[in-house]
Amino acid sequence: MAVASRLDTGLAFTNVLLPTLAKGVIVRRSGVTALAEKVQADALAVATVKRFRARYGPEPLRLRVTGRSIALVLDASDAARLLADSPEPFRLDTVEKRAALDHFQPHGVLISSGEERAARRRFNERVLHPDKIDAEGIVRDEVDLLLRHARSTGALTWDAFARAWWRAARRIVLGSGARDDHEVTDLLRQLRGNANWAYLHPKRKRLRERFEARLREHVERGEAGSIAGLGDPDEVVGQAPHWLFAFDAAGIVTMRALAIGGEGHAGIWESARLWPTTPVILRESTEPTDWHGTWLPAGTTFIVFAPYFHRDRDRLPYADEYAPRIWPLPAEPGIVPFSGGPGACPGRDLVLVAGGTALEVLRPHLEVPVLRAPLPATLNHFGLSFVTRK
């Protein structure tokens, strides 16, 4: 197994990892995202990983980082193995992930392990089903109101869409009584902003307590028709911060799907393939593991850079185009817009229904698509705007 030169290790950080972090892993930074689109940062990142594979071969590439064992995954079959063999021997709750998510969801399933993780995962899988709540009806309600606003102004902007999407998200997760409670999601946004800095930002205990108290007020209503009404309040309070966090990413995916003229579930899947909202997937080994004859120690952090597997033109003839035909089962094992294996997003079907419904309602009334192939490697959703049809 190859070890990257110091220069290439530096390039892995400066061209691939740091731009991803700068855009905001937990909450997107609008200014940096706009700059990343201008320079097409993800195109450079994908090209860098492709050069690594050409230079070092398909096996995981060890980076030269003092005191750490870190490997960049370069082959789709290795990425599939990591995801399939989670959480043992490849745990999801990596050091970096715990440092970030602990700011706002210390009891979240993504930073849990052992039986605690298994129980929380089962709970998530049980309640995050579109047949348990009327997500489609809620989204239709809010998007219909959004359309009225868009017609009055002549355009649909990200800001207007995001306000409507958050109203729908609060209703789906917490109930209609939380529809206009902007404060609960504003508090969460502040905590997520801190989480962008992971262990470099001190925990804001009082802010999190304020958020959790506000959250619990809604959860303890146990409103019928919401996810909060499907479980024990303590379980819901522990997991709801992640559900709300995930709805933010779902909104971004939906807005980008509009830009390519996406339709239905395939439109959502394709948007998430073209511009993954989780571009860096991390796993950490719990024991020594054999990789093509080389043993890597326990505690090795594995990095799967999803845009490389989703947008490599040498392997995927449809890499830079809208290709709904590949879904729901793409032949390429490295295409994982909702992750994969036992760690796959348990709310995927809920996201597909909510996002697909928004596309169905909005698309006939907007001038779409606004983007055509070859599609950009980096897309700033904050800057998207759609003219309404007369």
Score class of each variant (00 low, 15 high):
A2E: 14
V3S: 13
S5C: 09
D8F: 10
D8M: 10
D8G: 06
N15D: 13
L17S: 04
L21M: 10
K23D: 00
K23L: 00
S30W: 04
A34D: 03
K38A: 15
A45Y: 00
V46A: 01
A47E: 14
A47V: 02
V49W: 00
R51D: 12
R53P: 03
L63T: 04
S69Y: 14
A71Q: 07
L72I: 09
V73L: 09
L82N: 06
L83I: 11
R91V: 10
T94K: 04
T94G: 07
R98V: 13
H107W: 09
G114W: 02
R117E: 08
R120C: 01
R122A: 15
R122E: 12
E125V: 15
R126C: 05
D134Y: 07
D134S: 10
D134R: 08
A135V: 15
V139F: 07
L145Q: 15
L147D: 09
R148M: 14
A150L: 10
G154P: 12
L156V: 11
D159I: 10
A160W: 03
W165E: 09
A169R: 01
G177L: 07
A178F: 06
A178I: 06
R179P: 06
D180M: 09
D181V: 11
H182D: 15
T185Y: 00
D186H: 09
Y199W: 13
L200R: 13
H201S: 13
K205T: 15
R206G: 11
L207D: 04
L207K: 08
A213W: 06
A213R: 14
L215W: 03
R221M: 08
G222N: 08
G225Y: 10
S226N: 05
A228Q: 02
E235T: 13
L244N: 04
A246E: 07
G251S: 04
M255N: 01
A259T: 05
I260A: 05
G261V: 08
G262L: 06
E270M: 03
S271H: 05
A272F: 00
T278R: 08
E284D: 13
E284N: 11
T289K: 10
T289L: 13
H292C: 10
P297C: 12
A298I: 12
F302P: 02
A306T: 12
R315C: 06
P330E: 07
E332G: 02
P333Q: 10
G334S: 10
I335G: 01
V336H: 10
P337A: 09
G340F: 06
G341W: 09
G343I: 15
L350V: 09
A354L: 03
A354H: 03
T357W: 05
A358Q: 07
H365M: 01
E367H: 14
V368W: 05
P374T: 05
G383F: 01
R389Y: 06
K390F: 02
